[in-house]
Design a protein around this nucleic acid. Structure first.
Lengths: 144, 144
DNA sequence: TGTCGTTATATGAATTTTCATATAATCTGG
DNA sequence: CCAGATTATATGAAAATTCATATAACGACA
């Protein structure tokens, strides 16, 4: 069952850890009436302010055409608004609405709590190193 | 751009690192004529031998009905075969074919090389701790 | 200012994925 | 041995995702 190539392969460890770590919380997200895509968009916007489609797509790990359709649905549902920037009307700024904020406000502390529980059995040094390695990987691979 | 909740959130760091780490290699997989799902299935089977649908679905991080359809296509394409176990005919064993092996055989060393390059700038201790934390997270969350 | 190359988002058709449930085999208690 | 509960996979309709490309706005330069 274990011991082969795959079980020591970084891509697989990351994919599986990511999958499992998200699983329980994503179930909670769905119970609250949001999909995972909506959760990611709202968490990102509520965290960092308005963002254009392309940047938001990179942030939430979707292709641009996929995100455009997610935003279509969310705009329809009143969770976000869409408006072209004055200075460059190609750039469409997505902005969270009060309804969107209301939809995530309860999930944000739940997410923090979920993370705290997950990491409770590791030392602060281990957690710091884990996050540091992940962040440097991300930074390096984002620079394209 | 940085410094908010999301940028320090473990789920997000894992998802983004996983996404970026896989991106280049997945492009290579697609150039070789396989999809990501096919690559994962073939890598898993070539690594660990035949496996029933349900276990394989957990391994490759797909829902069971999704994997059933992936296996439909792969069986159609001659990459795997499907056969019920003697002892329990509900359990369908998926087995890699010579054609399946031929399709992944070039990718496996490429995957190893990709990982080696990614981790080249970290110390062995950092790599060991990273993988150890990921594995303990996985083990803990798999136990359900 | 008009044309060309570039960047940003949208769209449509085809594929893939999901959700709920059907089918089928096995197990369990009486 | 039988009826109901459980487990494993398959199926079908609906939804989401992707790929290629269309549309539209901007930038540079003659």
């Amino acid at each position: 069952m274990t011991g082969g190539f795959v079980d020591d392969y970084l891509s697989y460890l990351l994919a599986r850890a990511s999958h499992l770590v998200s699983r329980d919380f994503h179930a909670q997200v769905k119970r609250s009436g949001l999909g995972v895509a909506e959760w990611r968009v709202l968490a990102t916007l509520s965290d960092g302010g308005p963002m254009i489609i392309g940047e938001l797509a990179r942030r939430v790990l979707y292709e641009q055409p996929t995100l455009t359709k997610v935003i279509d649905r969310m705009e329809e549902g009143g969770l976000v608004t869409r408006a072209a920037q004055e200075s460059d009307r190609r750039r469409i700024e997505v902005r969270i609405t009060p309804a969107g904020t209301a939809a995530v406000v309860g999930l944000l502390p739940a997410a923090k709590m979920h993370e705290t529980q997950l990491l409770a059995s590791y030392s602060p040094e281990e957690v710091a190193l884990l996050k540091s390695v992940l962040r440097t990987l991300i930074d390096r691979l984002s620079a394209d």
